[in-house]
Design a protein around this nucleic acid. Sequence first.
DNA 1: GCCGTTTTCGGCCCGACTGTTTTCAGTCG
Length: 563
Amino acid sequence: MSADNARIGEMFDRLADLLEIEDANPFRIRAYRNGAQTVREHPRSMADLIIEEKDLKELPGIGKDLAEKIRAIVETGRLPALEEVEARTPGVLSDLMKIPGLGPKKVKALYKELNIRSVADLRTAAREQRIRGLPGFAARTEEQILRRTEKFSVEERRFNLLEAEQIKNPLMEWMEKLDGLSQLIVAGSFRRRKETVGDLDLLVTARRNTPVMEHFTGYEEIAEVVSRGTTRSTVRLVSGMQVDLRLVPKTSYGAALHYFTGSKTHNIAIRKMGVKRKLKVNEYGMFRGDKQIGGRTERAVYGLFDMPYIEPELREFRGEIEAALENRLPRLVGPKAIHGDMLCYATDARSTSALAKRAVEREYEWLGVCFDSEGGLDRKQIITWRRALDRTGQRLGIELLLIGEAAIAKDGSIVADQELLSEFDLVAVVVRDGMHLDHGAQTRRLLRALENPHVKLLTSPTGRVIGRYPGMDYDLKRVLAFAAERECMVGLDARPDRLDLSDEACRLAKEVGATVAICSHARTPDELDNLRFGLDQARRGWLERGDLVNTRNSGVIRGQFPD
DNA sequence: GCCGTTTTCGGCCCGACTGTTTTCAGTCG
């Protein structure tokens, strides 16, 4: 996802906000929002598409007008339509709309009546109690505004999957204490295993008269109960995570699960298919006219359209519906099919043994082990490691592969004694510095590194850290294709704060025929569990058994990438 | 502003919850 796309999306959203304040045609506003989402979620940058003379009108929600506006932004960095609106209505007002509880109407009133333009203005006015008394604002609203602007900075935070699980697990334990609960599941992007999660969507069915909402809002980690009704409640936890809970009848459970799992664009596509067949699909069920014809199970939603079940990880409206209709959905890999982990780090015989032992418990047949070495390494050291691995492997009944990891220099050469490289079972390379090189130089650097015949694995391919560093800028497709040609594996760094490759990059790897190796990068036995986040990502990237080296048995593995 | 196997006009998701209201508008997902 390029910064440019994010900027285009932001401009469209801002325009939509201001038009909303001006009370413009709501469908026109939505068109801008849809366009913003399409652009933001597109894997390629709009600038690239324009260079390649692709027709932007092919993108969903982009027509003649938006295509021209995108082109204008890419070429000039400006959106004249936005500037025109900003001449009438200050652009910063759109920041106010991000505060929960403030929508276009309230923001407009605050601006017109009190000339409030910024969050700072708003706080001052609230403290001075100038807001109460405005039509539609009472003392309570004013207090709420003050409270919510205080927390404004934390509200936007997204959590990685590990953080989300650590918040979710104790909450689920709390909910399960409730007598009368039948079904309890987390839907939303968490269920789709998206790499970051903004909130948790709990879906619940229960026996009649079960005090679900009372129990839920009694959870001790709650910082604020945002709303509480009979079928829906929203809370914000101390951690900053927002949690929505929805109570649905059992006859709607499947439909609701589908609806609240999303993604939104996937749901819209499904709903549209329903409309064509004169069927209504919503969170309550599937209907022909007024008659409910399904809703208990999620599978039935897809069955309605003669489609096979689409796994949550695939529901991003990236071709999964067409694939399902044509019966060519990928067969996603489950945890049982995983026989090994390509990369963990040991420091000595003892840590090797601890990692290997855990790997055996996880029913792995093989494990790639890399030794952290200080400074250069020598033949003697390698022999020591090899011995430790062989002994431990035999004792525990697991094949341990000796991985040598070397850095890629800025010129693409491998920083290591070339003769020693052949002593390893497998040589992995990684970019440790010079991540800022420009597109061309970085591409050349990686291609050159892969030319080295010893190199069999490229780890942490983009170097990204989720939410902190977007990753190196280079021609990923070209590098992946070259890796495929050279029979060099591409690592999927499974650490939950990295997940490097992205889901889209996994698809790209599959497209060019590169073999992906999920790597936990564990330094402790517990961290071997990171692998499952990598597997989630691989599933989101449509990878199948044959695309992943982790599904292969020992024996096959050593001969797989001969030196 | 977008879209089209009812195609160039006339649709576009809508129900739950809140707060202030006295019958409902605004916001959210």
